[in-house]
Simulated scan of single mutants.
Amino acid sequence: MDWRLLLSICLVVVQIHVAMAAFGIPDFLEMGGCAQVKTKRNFDPDRYAGIWFTVETVENEYEQCKACINTNYTWMGDHFALTAKGLDKTGKKIRKQSMMHANEEEPDDWAHMIVDAEGVPAAPYKVVATDYVTYSCVYSCMSFVGFRAEFFWFMSRTPSAEPGLSELCKNTLSANGVDTSKFEIIDQGKTCPYVSKLDSILSWNQKYMQSVDKSLNKEPEDAHSTKQETTTKEVTVDAKAVEDLTQMVKEEKEILTEMEEKIEEDVKELKELEKEIKDTERRHRHHERKEHHLEETENSAMAQSAATAPLLLVLFVSYLSHSLLS
């Protein structure tokens, strides 16, 4: 390669990086195109639904949730309703809702969907691998004029994944041409808000997956697509689990009640403000009418004075003449 061409390419790369730093272009934006990953064959949305914990992912400065990330995927028959919870970098609780629907280019491939969320562009969601009961490996990438924004997730049905599943996901992505060195571990576990309800969450997850498998007459898969080993202790929804789930529903209702009360307060304030504005307008109109009446009275008095002045002058002159003649 000619040294001048090589130098020009180096200068262009340097200028691009300088521009990215100067104009605040996000760090996750890279040069290059998206990997052509293969999605999971015969993907089943019903079996994929439920709660997933994000164990590893790629840093995204636009993503508010930084720790304890867990997402409830609710299958609605023709799309997923997503509710994501977690903590931001300050430790504040975050709750976000979004929707995931079929990709128009491949409407029959439910392993390749589109995520629509408020405040961010629609993004692809490709399930590269999953056994539905333990792990999920997801890839997302958007490219534009030689640059790409590439993300991937390793998720588990539990806050800590079973050994070997993370490597299984990374190997699958690597085989599809993805550089998995960008993976970062997400804090999960004892410090997360869900800890007190974790047994209930996992129990609900297990029961949901069992009910779906039963309705489909399928045996659950494990990470290696073999029959899942029977656990030594059967998971049951005990009184404590019911109590925790009831508490979760109660908290959701309290949030809705608070929102309704806030709306009622806002409506009340608006009505009071509207009444105050009307009262002010009424007083203003009354004041204007009063001033107008006073002005008319003054003008009338002045007009009467002006009319009677000549008569008074005549009378005064007549009086003087009479006095002088006497």
Rank of each mutant, 00 (worst) to 15 (best):
K253G: 00
V127F: 05
A175C: 04
I9S: 05
Y48M: 09
V115H: 02
L5Q: 15
A306W: 15
L313P: 02
Q64A: 14
P121W: 03
K262G: 00
S305N: 15
S203W: 01
T71M: 12
A241Y: 03
A175N: 12
I51Q: 12
V133M: 12
I69V: 12
R283K: 15
I16P: 01
E254Q: 04
G50M: 04
D266P: 00
M248N: 09
H101G: 09
E265V: 06
S215N: 09
A223H: 02
Q247W: 06
E229L: 08
F80V: 08
I185V: 11
E106L: 09
K170S: 10
M31R: 15
D109K: 14
R283L: 12
I9P: 03
V14T: 10
Y208M: 13
H287R: 14
Q15G: 07
H101V: 06
I185R: 14
E276N: 15
A84E: 15
S160L: 11
A175T: 08
V14W: 06
S200E: 05
E276T: 11
L5W: 06
I9F: 09
H292R: 14
M100Y: 03
M209N: 07
T57L: 08
P193H: 06
E269A: 09
L313T: 10
V138Y: 04
I9M: 06
D116G: 00
F151I: 00
E288A: 11
S181K: 06
D27W: 08
I186D: 03
E298P: 03
A67K: 15
C10N: 11
F28V: 05
S318C: 12
T236M: 08
T180H: 02
L294Y: 07
G24M: 04
W110V: 02
H79G: 03
E296V: 09
V235A: 06
H17D: 07
S300L: 14
W3A: 12
F316S: 10
V237H: 00
C34V: 04
L87E: 01
I114N: 02
K126I: 04
R157N: 02
T90P: 02
A102I: 05
A19N: 01
K40D: 06
K190T: 08
E106R: 12
C192Y: 11
D108A: 12
K207R: 15
E252Y: 06
V178Q: 02
H322P: 02
D179M: 03
S196F: 08
E274H: 10
E276C: 07
E167I: 03
N299Y: 04
A239T: 13
A84H: 00
F152H: 01
S318W: 14
Y194E: 13
L216R: 14
S215H: 07
R4E: 12
A67E: 13
L270W: 15
R289W: 14
P45G: 05
E219A: 07
F80G: 05
A122K: 15
K66G: 06
I186K: 03
K271V: 08
D199S: 03
K271P: 00
E234I: 05
P121D: 00
K182Y: 07
C10W: 11
E254D: 01
S200I: 01
V178I: 02
S156V: 01
N60L: 05
S136H: 02
N42L: 07
E56I: 03
S196K: 13
V145C: 09
E298K: 09
D199Y: 01
A309Y: 13
E105V: 01
